[in-house]
Nucleic acid binder design. Sequence first.
DNA 1: ATAGAGATTGCCT
DNA 2: GGCAATCTCTATA
Length: 177
Amino acid sequence: MAPELLNLLLVRGDRVGRIVEVEAYGGERDPASHAFRGPTPRAAIMFGEVGRLYVYRSYGVHWCANVVAHGDEGAGAVLIRAVEPVAGLAAMWPARPAARREVDLASGPGKLCAALGISADDLGADLLGPASTVRLLDDGMAPPNEPTVGPRVGISVATEVPWRFSVPGSPHRSRPW
DNA sequence: ATAGAGATTGCCT
DNA sequence: GGCAATCTCTATA
């Protein structure tokens, strides 16, 4: 379902971004996944109710946002890797002091959390709940028929698994393919 | 208790 | 292109 998230809107307060790049992580059989070692305290949410927000700290510096997604059993999550700023840009600029161009505002998993203001406060938010701090919205733009597919980024194991998806040609993606 | 690694970013050369 | 920043989790003792 990771590519199905492409072109959906990620909303926090008055800041809105359109998802242009995602990366899927599996359960206990995916050595690159936080769920690989079972439902540990951090990873337990990946084994729970789908459609919730999983936020974790990356390199002690950044927050990363995931959508919990899996079948009837098992575990998994989809990392949001990049969004295109759609609304609330005025609040995004001061949250991203290093960004000088609009395309750099949210073109990475840590960047988009900073731009939208997503942090541990939002951990576990029901992304489809109308009252949640962080929400996923469908404004009618369908996901791309043929998303760009490639290997996952920043991991040292199972790098051959082609579970990175993006909107073809979007200038807001995190890294060149 | 403690050590090592990490789904990244931005500044430096 | 190299590398530091800095927190959390997990494994080992």
